[in-house]
Design a protein around this nucleic acid. Structure first.
Lengths: 328, 328
DNA sequence: CTGTTAGCGCATTCAA
DNA sequence: TTGAATGCGCTAACAG
């Protein structure tokens, strides 16, 4: 703190630019003086001033991780915390920092406007493509858990996962399978629904509209959905829930009215997070590779920052974690 | 982007410093020229370069929110995501940004070393006081969910909450109340335990050591603890869990062996997060004011940055959210 | 009230 | 291989 490149230059009887070169590794410099400089830098605990460096080089060594306000709160129902944490861990290895920001009212986050960051990761859906295009003109952008044409995106295989879960229930002999979600307006949930639909189609089973149930975007979405479900005249024998939150709500609602899971009604969820092992029976759930998503997103953004070539769309493989709620 | 203070100065036939003054609001300037400047700045969409500004003023308008790696992952069991998000929302109002960082191996986070931030919020326990002292010499520091002497700290009333929960069970007529936690080595959990002990003492009931059960710091801590619990020769009639995660695990374990909650054994948790309404029966739980904690932490740090006076210890009041698991 | 001057700390030309 | 000079964009002290 306070110690500058001039101080250690003067101390060693060299010029500031020599010190700069020694530290940045750019430009030719003799091994001897480099070692001398490195040594005293070490001893004195000199820390380069990143602000000055950023001003001179026009790069901040910081990235923004931006989450849409719709995905808040970042509470027990969200898995974006894990992704954030993974991105931080990954970019930190390469000397980068993470600025955490929220996307409010579709307004360009201040940290992007102010060029406080070298690149941006957007977490979650519902980000207007116009906005993404605007940011993309300024900085490298990576989308996570969402995708847009011509923007580097990292997603889990929602469609494949939805299909996998549904096929698993079909293999258990279920032919009457309901699909419940908070809302199909959410692209991820909709993709899972398409997977469900595809699996049924493959087995020649028609989709019954009344068995596709939305609870709405609300805290008690699970209750609303299950109220609708329990009012059905001919109850399905299985439920595929678009996420674990809804699946857990389903199990609770079913248990409450005396229906046994999985004997009376089987349940499969989607996410395979901490909730899955919290319920009784333990939840069979499609595993969303959140850690991998964070890692790939970070690596892709770092790739873009280096000017490298990066796959536009990374669809990460998804697996089914089998526990008891499906009847296995 | 690219547009500088010189550009708009030249455009208006004034000097750069005049523009600077107009924008910063510092120094005297005529209302007329200020308005002229403000107008063209608006029209041209000029964005001051924060890096240059930071270099000149030595203030970054960014704060760090640092979480100890022990509290990772930031998954469905953590409530620090909410606190992070609240802090971001709060400081954003005042033009500040949030750098998210992890405390690894008790090493000073890079963003602090590099003076990328003006202040620091530490989230969670287990932060070595030596480290905090070191940071405090460099920057204003606020602790959340933890406290240290002479450091501005924001905590929930863990002791009061533990007492409240235990008293509630006592009022239900329970005299045999177990306490389960991941570990008493965690200061928050220990405080909750002290509250439990105090409540029992107040009613002249002795603490039975075998009824104070730790599951350890592990993902399946709840299972371990409940295994121990179910092996007790004389089963308590109530459980006070140090957090909702353990409470939910308790309910699951009890249900699994055919014990009814709350009829056979009552359960009270601590946190009152999203998990509490996810289980059956819904969990009676001590509400940790996470949003308030985040807000107060942010406001206190902003206060310190302004050089104001700020309370060293803020103990936020805690309430009991009564649902069904206690027998009410 | 406004313009001039001199840094903030570092990177990067260009000479030597 | 090294040093001197210049600039990154803004703020602040000092004149005027």
């Amino acid at each position: 703190m306070g110690l500058t490149i001039h101080d250690i230059a003067r101390l060693l009887g060299v010029s500031p630019s020599t010190v700069s070169r020694a530290l940045s590794g750019k430009g030719r410099i003799s091994e001897a003086t480099r070692e001398r400089i490195r040594k005293t830098v070490e001893e004195l605990g000199y820390q380069p001033n990143v602000l000055a460096r950023a001003l001179a080089t026009r790069s901040t060594f910081a990235i923004a991780v931006v989450i849409h306000e719709r995905h808040l709160p970042l509470d027990e129902r969200s898995f974006y915390g894990v992704i954030l944490e993974t991105i931080e861990a990954e970019v930190t290895k390469h000397g980068y920092h993470v600025v955490f920001a929220t996307l409010r009212n579709h307004a360009l986050p201040q940290c992007i406007k102010e060029s406080r960051v070298d690149g941006v990761v957007f977490l979650g859906t519902d980000i207007q493509s116009k906005l993404v295009e605007e940011v993309k003109r300024l900085l490298p952008v990576v989308l996570v858990d969402y995708h847009l044409p011509n923007v580097v995106s990292v997603v889990g295989d929602n469609l494949g996962g939805g299909r996998l879960a549904t096929l698993h229930l079909l293999e258990h002999g279920h032919k009457r399978i309901a699909f419940i979600a908070e809302t199909l307006a959410d692209p991820s949930f909709h993709e899972r629904f398409v997977g469900y639909r595809r699996a049924l189609k493959e087995r020649g089973i028609a989709v019954r509209k009344s068995w596709v149930i939305e609870g709405g975007r609300r805290p008690d979405s699970d209750r609303i959905a299950m109220e609708k479900f329990l009012k059905l005249s001919d109850l399905p024998t299985a439920i595929f829930a678009a996420n674990d939150f809804m699946a857990v709500g389903a199990i609770r609602a079913l248990t409450q009215v005396g229906l046994k899971v999985p004997e009376d009604i089987a349940v499969v969820g989607f996410d395979d997070g901490a909730l899955a092992t919290l319920v009784q029976p333990p939840l069979t759930s499609v595993r969303v590779p959140r850690v991998e998503m964070g890692k790939v997103a970070a690596q892709n953004l770092l790739g873009l920052l280096r000017g490298g070539d990066v796959p536009v769309l990374s669809v990460l493989p998804i697996t089914l974690t089998i526990r008891a709620s499906c009847g296995c």
